[in-house]
Simulated scan of single mutants.
Amino acid sequence: MPTDDTTSATLIVAAAADRVFAVLCDPGTHAAIDGTGWVQASVDRSPLDHAGQVFRMSMFHRNHPDGDYQVANQLREFDPPRTIAWTPGTENSDGTLEFGGWIWRYDLAVIGPRRTAVTLTYDWSAVPDRIREYLQFPPFGPDHLANSLRHLAELAVL
Rank of each mutant, 00 (worst) to 15 (best):
M1E: 10
P2L: 01
D5V: 11
T7C: 11
T10K: 01
V13W: 13
A14R: 13
A16H: 05
D18G: 10
V23N: 07
L24C: 07
D26R: 14
P27W: 09
G28S: 11
A31N: 07
I33L: 08
T36G: 04
Q40P: 00
R45M: 04
S46Q: 13
S46E: 15
H50S: 12
H50Y: 15
G52A: 01
R56Y: 07
S58A: 15
H61C: 06
H61Q: 03
R62A: 15
N63G: 01
G67K: 00
V71I: 13
N73M: 10
L75Y: 00
L75P: 05
D79F: 05
R82G: 12
R82P: 06
I84F: 10
G89Q: 13
S93E: 12
F99Y: 11
F99A: 03
G101Y: 12
G101I: 04
R105K: 12
Y106P: 00
A109T: 10
A109D: 11
A109Q: 10
V110W: 04
R114K: 11
A117C: 08
L120Q: 14
W124L: 06
W124Q: 01
S125D: 07
S125A: 14
S125E: 07
A126T: 13
P128R: 10
I131L: 09
F137M: 15
P142K: 14
N147T: 14
A156Y: 11
